[in-house]
Amino acid sequence: MPSHPASDPFAADLLRGHTDTIVLGTLRRSDRYGYEVHKAIRDATGGEYEIKEATLYASFRRLERDGLVESYWGDETQGGRRKYYRITDAGQAVYRRNVADWRTTKQIIDTLLDHEGGRP
């Protein structure tokens, strides 16, 4: 497995614009702490895409500032305390809207690039 899969130019730029939505997506089912989110994204793409943890912290800060996620400290008795993130209703709404926007955009780009059914 390459150690920096996201440096692959094909996806990195496109994906970067959707970091916040991707992070929100990982929090929809359950609260997670930073490293869990990192792992969830990596595992979901089979290791093909990884968000750098630094990028993740910046994303959490934006999302929390905008009221889309909320954080709380876990009560682990062993090891370091984990800061968990929880998606708010506002976050759920933004996530749904961004996904809908993405579907529309994808359709338009597919049409413009004359790309149907996965074949150019």
Partner: peptide
């Protein structure tokens, strides 16, 4: 301080 603690936990997990 919280941010540092959070980063520490995540780094150690990795």
């Amino acid at each position: 301080q919280d941010l540092k603690e959070e980063m520490r936990t995540n780094l150690l997990a990795r």
